[in-house]
Design a protein around this nucleic acid. Structure first.
Lengths: 189, 189
DNA sequence: GAAAATATGGAGGTCATCTCCATTTGTCAA
DNA sequence: TTGACAAATGGAGATGACCTCCATATTTTC
């Protein structure tokens, strides 16, 4: 799928500059207030170059998002290695809230892109979903979590948390959602 | 707030035509693939007229959304009148999933608008949120639901359900989320 | 039924997006 | 090193969506 052709030196440099600036702008939450052309100039690059590297806003977002997802997957693996599955899951979900809180602008950007149904992100987040699915499955095997609901529900709830980032009392509510999920998951009924 | 001035006859007619066509397009899910100008023509109206009635896409969406919200609020009231609070809540949430499933295009449209953070919808959905808040509060008073999490969490989860409408196994996952919420809400910890 | 008030529609201005290609920069073999 | 070929650049300008403006048409009022 990713038939990475060796990139020429200057091309690589420009590409990196674009990604770096993109991360910056994302975090500030200004991504959609900015003309795409201006973004190019901001990154010290011509419009043509920008468009060759990233044909659309979404493509750029996905590239940034990719690193983010990888980091989260690592986090899941790390937790799984050091804690019982159920605890790892709980910790991961709580961490997730903190993580989103700490990167509000990025969360907002991603939520917007998700909704634009570009699909690019659904594709990109597959890895994270897989990691969570494994985590839940492990917890089920331990008997700590019911087996009649899938990990998809957890992803959906997380999606909601990320997407609702503009609610005034976001952090408390997000933690409430996690609490309900975890308590709901515990009871084998 | 709404100082409804009496609208001239033809103006009312055009306005209705716009709303009717909007509902149609919403339900088909094509709202964002359509040039706003073309939408005007589709509704048999000049661009100027469209813009006078609804200055932005969001304004139009909100107008459509308004009826939707009112219907849902009625539904909540009706359930509260005929069932114990906890059951009413459960039924409402299950119904909500069905409702969204039945109006996929509309759900998609609303989710997109939510994410665009226009705020128009947050404002518009206040009534629904209030109704849900009352419902949860009543269930808490009955002792059927824990009192340490707010209704905001429920709204957030609903938001996630609506926003994630493109997941392949949506309906089952949505119901799982509701199941987790309801079981999590049952008190005993 | 005529004047005043209100609403209409679509031609055209404005501005972000994206393409195209003449020029520059990097790579590699001799 | 140098020449020659390939790869990449950047920004001027075409494109097309969005919205405004106002001469005309419709409704209401007296």
């Amino acid at each position: 799928m990713t038939a990475d052709k060796p990139l020429r030196a200057d091309a690589q440099r420009k590409r990196d500059a674009l990604l770096a600036k993109a991360r910056e702008v994302f975090d500030a939450g200004d991504f959609f207030d900015l003309r795409f052309d201006d973004f190019a100039r901001l990154a010290g690059v011509g419009t043509g170059t920008l468009y060759r590297h990233f044909p659309t806003r979404e493509a750029l977002a996905e590239a940034v998002y990719h690193g983010e997802i990888a980091a989260l997957c690592d986090r899941v693996r790390q937790l799984r290695a050091t804690l019982p599955a159920a605890e790892a899951l709980a910790t991961f979900l709580r961490d997730m809230v903190e993580h989103i809180a700490a990167h509000e602008g990025l969360a907002r950007t991603l939520a917007t892109l998700m909704a634009t149904r570009s699909g690019a992100l659904t594709e990109g987040s597959r890895a994270l979903e897989q990691a969570v699915t494994d985590l839940v499955a492990a917890a089920v095997r331990d008997g700590a979590v019911r087996d009649d609901v899938g990990a998809g529900a957890v992803m959906m709830a997380l999606h909601g948390i990320g997407a609702a980032h503009d609610r005034p009392d976001w952090r408390a509510e997000a933690n409430d959602v996690i609490t309900l999920l975890l308590d709901g998951l515990r009871r084998p009924l």
